[in-house]
Write a protein that binds this DNA or RNA. Structure first.
Length: 476
DNA sequence: ATGTTC
């Protein structure tokens, strides 16, 4: 889009001043090139978000932002319940609590070389991936309620994982305030055979090597060294999250007029935080967060089993687990005063800096790990939160490379088989059930993750710690 | 993202 529509505040901060029904400005963190690459829809969607009741400070977009459903993906917005603030199902997204976790393996690149194919096969066999994939775990009514209430803590109690995993998951693995009774029977039905599955789209499990370290001190705290092998898992709440999103979006759109809300876009359906519907969505959405946390915990268990079959002495310890589709009540300073705000992050990662009370002791000195999944075949990054990020976008950073092209366009332009062959020639093994899915994920269909991350750092959203390169990718 | 057009 045209950069002249913005007031450039500094090198990476582009502002849309409030006009029309906008209550606050809209701000995009990007450089001129990333901004030009973004669809004009990002401008419109972010301006619409700035019109919603009770929004404070500004509607923000991260450098990886692109056109989404209602809210842009890469969007961050905070709402004050005391100012008539709202919660929006479109502001969280369909894949509730989609996120990334990264595991240390204790192996290095040389250990892996001779066993690469075998490990790819073992992981692909062990972890179901693709549309409608089903797992080996089947939940009944009681275990479903327990999972929705307990998240990764529930999964651990079922035998999936290790106790020390928990402190390295946001919310200690269990999102408080989940209300399984606000999750429909249909959402639960869709989920009962889907625990421990990756799903499709941009979801993946990737075996990666640490290719570059930018910050030795933070890397040491995070346990990262050059040539170490790590495994990253990117997935979410599967059919359950999608069903919750679908149902509440509809209800929020229908009831907006009776809540006195004139929606700038039907896709921005929302409900007041103090309404019954808003409260029900929060309870269901938090249960969806627990579903995603439990799912990533179970996949971790399956990953440990697959790796143990080839490297019996390897111990996989969790670095961290972050969610990037959430709405959370957090304390932030507005005009010098601490306030409880509902922070929507849609395709945006929490990036709390050093000393934040919500971080476990191990990360107090350097800030939380911010896990950035790149596109297929390209680098991923590990960043850390910094003090500034709390002033820039409520403690948030980008979540990935961000699409530059639609799935439809990408699937017309590339062939999955060719892409897999090209990547194989670079030593990257791709395993996927869907050649169309692979084509949709073609690296050039995404923005350049290196520049997205550089701009995120320049904007003070997070600081670079390490760059990872893919070796094996199990693709959803 | 999604039992990929409830």
């Amino acid at each position: 889009m045209d950069t002249s529509q913005f007031i450039q505040r500094d090198e990476t901060c582009w502002e849309i001043p409030p006009h029309g029904r906008m209550r606050v400005p809209a701000v995009i963190y990007a450089d001129a090139h990333l901004l030009q690459q973004m669809d004009q829809k990002v401008y419109e969607q972010l301006s619409n978000v700035a019109m919603l009741p009770g929004i404070v400070e500004a509607a923000y977009a991260m450098p990886d932002a692109h056109w989404g459903y209602g809210f842009p993906i890469g969007g961050v917005a905070a709402f004050d319940p005391e100012l008539g603030g709202v919660v929006s199902a479109g502001g969280v997204g369909f894949d509730i609590s989609c996120g990334v976790r990264t595991l240390h393996t204790g192996l290095n690149t040389d250990d892996l070389q001779a066993h690469k194919q075998a490990l790819a096969d073992a992981l692909y066999r062990m972890i179901p991936a693709g549309v409608g994939s089903r797992g080996r775990i089947h939940l009944n009514h009681q275990t479903m309620q327990g999972m929705l209430k307990g998240g990764a803590q529930w999964a651990l109690a079922q035998g999936y994982g290790e106790p020390q995993d928990l402190e390295r998951i946001e919310e200690h693995g269990k999102m408080a305030g989940a209300e399984p009774n606000y999750v429909s029977a249909r959402a639960k039905e869709r989920q009962k055979d889907e625990m421990g599955t990756l799903g499709s789209g941009n979801h993946y499990l990737e075996v990666q090597r640490v290719a570059e370290i930018f910050d030795q001190d933070a890397a040491q705290v995070f346990g990262l060294q050059t040539d170490a092998v790590v495994i990253s898992i990117h997935c979410g709440s599967r059919g359950l999250g999608h069903q919750i999103g679908t149902e509440f979006l509809k209800q929020m759109a229908v009831s907006a007029p009776q809540h006195g809300i004139a929606l700038p876009d039907r896709e921005l359906a929302c409900a007041p935080l103090d309404s019954s519907l808003g409260n029900q969505y929060l309870g269901a959405m938090r249960a969806g967060i627990n579903c995603a946390l439990a799912n990533r915990q179970i996949i971790t268990h399956l990953t440990r089993q697959a790796v143990a079959g080839i490297f019996p002495d390897a111990h996989l310890s969790l670095l961290y687990d972050v969610s990037h589709n959430t709405c959370k009540l957090e304390q932030h300073e507005i005009g010098g005063k601490k306030k409880g705000l509902f922070i929507h992050r849609k395709g945006a990662t929490r990036a709390f800096g050093p000393g934040h009370p919500d971080l476990p002791p191990v990360f107090q000195a350097v800030g939380q790990p911010v896990l950035i999944g790149g596109s297929m075949g390209t680098s991923s990054y590990i960043l850390c939160g910094c003090k500034d990020s709390e002033k820039r976008a409520f403690g948030s950073a980008c979540h990935g490379a961000g699409r530059a092209m639609s799935r439809r366009q990408a699937s017309k332009q590339w062939r999955g088989k060719t892409l897999i062959e090209t990547l194989a020639a670079q030593g990257i093994i791709i395993r996927s059930q869907s050649m169309r899915g692979v084509a949709e994920e073609a690296p050039p269909a995404y923005k350049d993750v290196d520049s997205v991350v550089d701009i995120a750092e320049l904007a003070g959203l997070a600081r670079k710690v390490a760059r990872l390169e893919p070796m094996i990718c199990i693709k959803g």
